[in-house]
């Protein structure tokens, strides 16, 4: 859908939480993909002026250029809650969100650096007492105190939900890709540093972090103890065994049997 097609919602204040991402191939800092999609989703609802961007974390020059990537989407300013790397950013974000008065907070499903557990939106929603929906593909409409959204399910499926506002929502790869970030607005945009309280993340202090170990997907589990069975399990071709075979039926009767199974499995919509 072209973003121009969506009606802008008047009077709605939207905030997007953004983080510094990491390019999967080169590891260079960038705007995080899911976060950028969240911003894009916000821009489908409101004009850039009514969209607040919020980042909690450090603001080194390298990270700054990544954060400017969000400004390059046409938004004038980004608030940076200055937080050291070992801080728990949730209290700071919560306080800031309460101050801002946003009714809708958009978040990428998870970050691309650090723990990236995807917990922040859940903790915020819990603390703020707001609605939460995850995995949004699209916000279809916002109407007063609620909004209608499409939630992405696995296997490309979609579900329509009605969500009471205020709400925190998370966005992942199912949502529309973020618009290109433009150099001019990114350069001009303002990074507003906000000093705030710092809560140390004590729990994470004892963690060991290492580069991810490659983990090939499981092949077959051959449990059999006997050599013959291990042999057979490897060399035999896939056979179900015990299936129902219907012969001598009319095509209609065959079709009915199939239809019954399709209905039972719930794949027929």
């Amino acid at each position: 859908m072209r973003r121009e097609d969506i009606k802008q919602v008047q009077g709605l204040k939207v905030a997007a939480l953004v983080s510094v991402g990491r390019h999967p191939v080169t590891g260079r800092p960038r705007r995080a993909d899911f976060d950028a999609r969240a911003v894009e989703m916000g821009l489908s609802l409101v004009a850039p002026e009514n969209m607040s961007l919020l980042h909690a974390g450090e603001c080194s020059p390298e990270r700054e250029s990544a954060l400017r990537g969000y400004l390059g989407m046409g938004i004038g300013a980004l608030d940076v809650l200055d937080q050291p790397p070992e801080a728990d950013i949730v209290p700071a974000l919560e306080a800031r969100l309460r101050e801002m008065g946003a009714r809708l907070v958009l978040c990428g499903a998870r970050g691309e650096m650090g723990e990236a557990s995807g917990l922040v939106p859940f903790l915020l929603a819990e603390r703020l007492g707001w609605s939460l929906v995850s995995g949004l593909a699209q916000i279809e409409s916002v109407d007063g105190d609620s909004m209608t959204v499409l939630q992405a399910l696995p296997r490309g499926q979609r579900r329509r939900l009605k969500v009471r506002l205020p709400a925190v929502v998370t966005v992942d790869a199912a949502a529309q890709a973020a618009r290109q970030s433009a150099y001019g607005p990114a350069r001009r945009g303002e990074l507003r540093r906000i000093e705030g309280e710092v809560t140390p993340d004590a729990a994470a202090r004892d963690w060991n972090t290492a580069p991810a170990k490659k983990r090939p997907k499981r092949l077959k589990i051959v449990k059999a103890a006997s050599a013959r069975d291990r042999f057979k399990a490897a060399a035999a071709k896939a056979e179900g065994g015990g299936g129902q075979v219907l012969t001598g039926l009319s095509p209609q009767a065959g079709a009915e049997a199939i239809l019954k199974l399709l209905r039972e499995e719930g794949v027929l919509r």
Partner: peptide, 22 residues
């Protein structure tokens, strides 16, 4: 058919047509 959980032994086109109709 040996692999299948359910197998219908019939002309494929006819069964599909019947499915569509149903």
């Amino acid at each position: 058919v040996k692999r299948a959980d359910l197998a219908v032994i019939a002309d494929t086109g006819e069964v599909l047509a019947a499915l569509v109709e149903l």
